[in-house]
Design a protein around this nucleic acid. Structure first.
Length: 652
DNA sequence: CGCGGAGACCTTTTT
DNA sequence: GGTCTCCGCG
């Protein structure tokens, strides 16, 4: 193996991180400081020094991040990393649970359900419990949020309701009943939701010492990126796994903690030194990404948050142009400005992929999307509905789910209701029949099955059986998709949707994507954990990255950078988002979001504000510029002192 | 009992 | 724009 010349690639600070020996390591790193780079090189270094890749665990926030880090390592040390465990906590948890699920009362072939399924399961639990619907009892999605937050924070349901939804506290006994019922139902159906992948994983390690020993011994080195966005369960899992050898390295930036709504707790990173007093602590404060003007603004903004590690980012790069504040009349004019400015930048020689537009919430970008289409600017949206959550993808994968896990009631019902004359009631009847069978898939072919729900359902069930017959022999996902399409689903799509061809194209992509997997269960669980397919494929083929600008939420922009960043919707109510301010600590978290957005830009940064907001039809609402802009520009100060310039938009 | 149409309502962020 | 609910028809 050829040794890496670290000094050629890393600065002194990073080099310290990479070469510090064993034991706990904490890296507090500002934005653009090359923390991921340091982490990547550390993995390479470990392998270079003889550590078997199979004994390394690399936990990241997205799977994509793990992939790109590992392919970088592979190119550095030229070693096959097939054995390494890298991915999100959810992926790793799933991988481990697959092998030990029976200890927790599950089968190994459990399916992973998304929020939609979980909401549905909660709603049916409410009905089954006979809870009165006339009252203002919380709906499935709210209950889902409560249950999920309780799982991720280890707080009781009561506490979560009291703190976040006090007005629902009168229903607390019923809420507890639903939560319990939901848990039981998941086991009955042999399904786990996203939270279970963490909670059950922790339960496995805590309650089964043999299993803990197995993995504590296996993972000799554990490295974690974006540690500020871990929750209490993830931290516990790490503590358990690293308990004996303590080779735990965590990297993060408390100023970039933006996932507390989902249970992330940045006290994990703040308290790491208390928990691991022998930890090597590194602070990376040099910033290699942005101009000093952009960095200056980011620093000025984040000091308004009191609770944080003190750090000040220093720019390595020279001066550039000041960030620009762009007040516009409304979203239409804002879209107009962005498009016009993009065109100018392109004329100046900037490439599309060096430009990004960031926003707080998906719907803030609607008008811009339309304008971009109209003006023929190529763009890619990294937000909105996830690939897997689209109806046609869920329909087709439901067929696969019931083959893998015949207890999967949700999948059965979804598939059955695709057929004519089979709705909720009939599907329930059929499910009652199916669930009593020892081997549901083979009793499909009996006459009893065809007649199990009365006359009306016979044609539908016959067609369903034919489809199933066609696909049961296939282990191959692509063939199953073809089989489903060929046996009537294509016609169903044509009948139901306008955009049939793009949906079929999605299914083709799905088939193509499935080729990477050895087995159906692997494919299904990966799909459930995946945000979107194009994102994954792009990591592999960076060479032919298409030329387009990126539209993304700030959350999804985490860890990324662009030469030019437009941040649209910099108005009170949009950022900080009115709803988010109601949460305790809401303003600080919103300010961290603003900070994350700001530090994505390398050279140019535009904050766009809309003075008028359209709400529901004709009503108009006046908006002020975001407080995060205003606090940088006190009224008594000289405009030359502002960390930004103001743009005057042409009226026409 | 299924289903299509109409209308109301709301839309934070995600593994 | 999507989802949920309600209503009336077959």
């Amino acid at each position: 193996m050829e040794m890496i010349d670290y000094e050629e690639h890393l600065n002194a600070e990073q080099l310290g991180v990479v070469t510090s020996g064993e034991g706990p390591i904490l890296v507090i790193a500002g934005a653009g400081s090359g923390k991921t780079r340091a982490l990547t090189y550390r993995v390479a270094r470990l392998i270079e020094s003889g550590v078997n890749p199979g004994r390394i665990l690399l936990a990241t926030f997205t799977n994509k991040a793990a992939h790109s880090m590992l392919s970088r390592v592979e190119s550095l040390v030229d070693v096959d990393l097939g054995g390494i465990w890298g991915g999100t906590f959810h992926h790793v948890g799933n991988r481990i649970l697959r092998r030990h699920a029976p200890l927790l009362g599950y089968e190994n072939n459990y399916t992973i359900i998304d929020d939609g399924d979980s909401k549905q399961l909660i709603n049916t639990s409410i009905t089954e419990l006979g809870i009165t619907k006339s009252e203002r009892f919380p709906k499935g999605n709210i209950l889902g949020a409560i249950i999920s937050l309780s799982a991720n924070t280890k707080k009781s349901i009561e506490d979560v309701v009291l703190q976040k939804y006090p007005y629902f506290f009168t229903f607390i006994t019923d809420i507890l009943k639903v939560a319990l019922r939901y848990r039981i139902r998941k086991k009955e159906l042999n399904v786990m939701d996203f939270d279970d992948l963490l909670c059950n994983w922790e339960e496995l390690l805590s309650n089964f010492p043999d299993v803990l020993d197995l993995y504590a011994e296996r993972f000799l080195h554990i490295l974690v990126d974006e540690y500020q966005d871990t929750n209490i369960i993830q931290a516990k899992i790490l503590d358990l796994l690293a308990g004996t050898h303590r080779n735990l390295m965590v990297v993060g930036d408390d100023s970039q903690s933006i996932y507390s709504f989902r249970g992330a707790d940045f006290t994990n990173i703040i308290r790491f030194p208390e928990k691991y007093p022998d930890a090597h602590i590194f602070k990376l404060e040099m910033n290699y990404r942005s101009t000093s003007e952009i960095l200056h603004l980011a620093n000025m903004s984040i000091v308004n948050n009191v609770k944080q590690f003190q750090k000040e980012l220093r720019a390595v790069r020279g001066e550039g142009i000041r960030p620009v504040f762009v007040p516009t009349r409304d979203v239409i004019q804002q879209a107009d400005f962005v498009v016009q400015r993009i065109n100018e930048l392109i004329d100046e020689g900037i490439l599309y992929h060096e430009i990004a537009v960031l926003y707080r919430a998906h719907f803030h970008s609607m008008e811009l999307q339309m304008e971009l289409v109209r003006r023929g600017i190529p763009f890619e949206i990294r937000s909105g509905i996830r690939f897997f959550e689209q109806a046609h993808i869920k329909d087709v994968t439901a067929f696969m789910r019931l083959i893998v896990n015949p207890l999967d009631e949700l999948a059965w019902k979804r598939v059955l209701m695709l057929y004519h004359k089979i709705g909720q009631v009939t599907a329930q009847k059929i499910w009652l029949f199916i669930s009593k069978q020892a081997d549901p898939l083979s009793t499909m072919f009996s006459e009893d099955f065809i007649n199990c729900a009365g006359r009306g359902a016979v044609p539908g069930l016959t067609r369903f059986r034919n489809t199933l017959k066609g696909i049961l022999d296939f282990a191959d996902t692509a063939e199953i998709i073809q089989g489903v399409l060929a046996s009537g689903y294509r016609e169903y799509l044509q009948e139901k949707y306008q955009d049939t061809s793009s949906r079929e194209e999605d299914l083709r992509q799905l088939a193509n994507f499935s080729l990477k997997f050895d087995s159906l269960p692997d494919f299904l669980s990966d799909l459930a954990l995946l945000t979107n397919i194009t994102e994954e494929t792009e990591t592999r083929g960076l060479r032919d990255r298409e030329e387009k600008i990126v539209l993304t939420t700030i959350h999804q922009a985490k860890g990324l950078e662009w030469s030019v960043v437009f941040m649209i919707g910099c108005s009170e109510g949009k950022i900080p988002l009115a709803r988010a301010l109601k949460e305790p600590g809401g303003e600080d978290e919103e300010r961290r979001l603003f900070y994350v957005a700001t530090t994505r830009a390398k050279d140019q940064l535009y904050f766009c504000h809309t003075a008028v907001d359209f709400v529901k039809g004709m009503k108009r609402k006046l908006l002020n510029p975001s407080r995060f802009i205003k606090e940088l520009a006190p009224s008594h100060a000289d405009p030359d002192e502002f960390p930004f310039d103001q743009w005057v938009v042409d009226e026409h």
